[in-house]
Amino acid sequence: MTQELSLWALVIGATIPVKMVMLILLGASVMSWVMIVQRGIYLRKASSELKEFENTFWSGVDLNRLFSDGGGRAKNLPEGRIGGVEGVFRAGFREFNRLNQQAGVDPEAIVEGTERAMRIALSREEEKLNTHLPFLASVASVSPYIGLFGTVWGIMQSFRGLAMVQQATLAVVAPGISEALIATAMGLFAAIPAVLAYNRFAANAEGLQSAYETFAEEFSSILHRRVHSSQSEA
């Protein structure tokens, strides 16, 4: 093994600080990949749900039925609540109905209350969309530095070893430097997917968020119209 100088032998032969750096980077890489897959699944699901819900919403379905259907589905979910764009819709519609049933409520107040409820739901959705993204961002930005630290430390050690040797040959320093460079390689290995995933997921989350907001605006304008028409009828 020492003759072949395989990568595994280098990892095993590394000094303790370098080993710790490698361990941290391995952990960061594992975690970031877990996040990447989880985020990928979540965001894909959220965008497909958005498309589906918007299709049904604008197909001219009765809003009361849509709400009650959603309520039936929500009971089967573990959280007991539907997320995504439908969650925004449900929060707004529930508040609207509650306020509308109370007598003598100002139509402006009804619309305002509905908007507030939807804003709360929106911010909750935003939070959900952006979970783990800061983690990916920090892995992306910090792990190259951690790797570099390991490398610098390893090279320092190998040069210190070189100072004690009478005849300095390349063979004395080369394994140490090679071993140290593994840390940088690992840092980059952790960082590159994290950077890519962060950029992609941040863009996706932003897009979804603006789609939710647009929907909320449109929905509130529909409710506004409905309040005023019912008020004028009455």
Partner: peptide
């Protein structure tokens, strides 16, 4: 949520 997490853990 758990499904997506476990898929992530497996893949990683």
């Amino acid at each position: 949520k758990w499904l997506s997490y476990s898929a992530g853990v497996c893949f990683s």
